[in-house]
């Protein structure tokens, strides 16, 4: 691994100043589960690595505030997967966090890191899209918030600007129950990078939100507000046609060695059908519990 200088700012302001000063020469270190691999393979060679884990304002944690669940950017997957509120209200996100790598990886990998890497295969991205997450950003000109739908640009690129960093991810607490599920395709049952990820959420009003990843440069969100997709009594042709339109943005790369485009597209459809069924059933179960 190339030598670099290591910075461990104690305050958010200092971190922002460092990132602004060094620009692309600096890389942020949160969990390190992607960064250190890339430092070793030489695909990244920053002069400065800025470790966020000793910043008081960035303590990991999950709290409720003003009708939102606020997940600190440095919160690790293990804690997200185990959090009772997330498991109850945002089940797909808990499921997604639970399949990021092994126990060892989930103990380090952070939610902020997962979205900042902006891998098309990022497991948490579809769930965050379905649950309407908002990314909270600190930067030289203060703090800003953007919906997750406007966050991902393409593989490895987000709308984060120079000197900016993610401080939290917020999830609006749904007023009514929602059934949600995270599904993925991998090459083996043991931990693996996904060749298709999909999250489906169905709420009590019949709105279905489908998000999918690893089938294009960035994860995609598609919403059915007509209620047809979640309606088991709707005409099968209508549901199939709707699903096709919702999955139309999938454009898998032929260059990947993990799966071919036609297999990815076929599996996307399988996962979408299964996802709608599972999410609908979960919604029914949740409503039954009320």
């Amino acid at each position: 691994m190339h030598a670099f200088s290591y910075e461990r700012p104690a305050t958010l302001a200092r971190a922002v100043a460092l990132l602004e000063a060094h620009g692309p020469e600096a890389r942020v270190l949160a969990g390190g589960t992607d960064l250190i691999i890339r430092l070793r393979d030489g695909s990244l060679a920053p002069t400065v690595v800025v470790d966020l884990k000793r910043i008081a304002e960035l303590e990991p944690g999950i709290r409720e505030a003003d009708g939102r669940l606020v997940i600190g950017a440095t919160t690790v997957m293990t804690d997200i997967a185990a959090d009772a509120r997330i498991r109850r209200r945002f089940e797909a996100l808990a499921e997604a966090a639970a399949v990021v790598g092994s126990v060892q990886i989930r103990n380090r990998a952070t939610l902020g890191g997962n979205i900042c890497n902006a891998s098309p295969a990022a497991d948490t991205a579809p769930a965050l899209l379905v649950h309407g997450a908002v990314v909270v950003i600190a930067g030289p000109s203060g703090s800003r918030r953007i919906p997750i739908d406007g966050w991902f640009v393409r593989s490895g690129v987000t709308t984060l600007g120079r000197g900016e960093l993610v401080t939290a991810i917020e999830l609006p607490l749904p007023a009514a129950p929602m059934g949600s599920v995270h599904l993925r395709r991998t090459r083996r049952r043991g931990h693996d990078l996904a060749s298709v990820t999909l999250c489906c959420g169905v709420d009590a009003s019949g709105v279905t939100r489908l998000a999918y990843g690893s089938v294009g440069p960035r994860p995609v969100l598609a919403v059915d507000a007509t209620g047809v997709l979640a309606d088991r009594d709707a005409a099968p042709d209508a549901r199939t046609g709707l699903l096709e339109r919702m999955l139309a943005e999938a454009t898998p790369s032929a260059r990947s060695m993990r799966a071919s485009p036609d297999y990815r597209l076929a599996m996307l459809r399988v996962l979408a059908r299964r996802g709608v069924d599972i999410a609908t059933a979960r919604l029914a179960a949740a409503e039954g519990r009320r």
Partner: peptide, 21 residues
């Protein structure tokens, strides 16, 4: 996982943790 150690009560792959961390 050959490099697994426990760090602050949790197991990690020590190949993906900088010593300074």
């Amino acid at each position: 996982g050959a490099c697994t150690v426990r760090l602050d009560g949790r197991i990690v792959d020590s190949c993906l943790v900088l010593a300074v961390e």
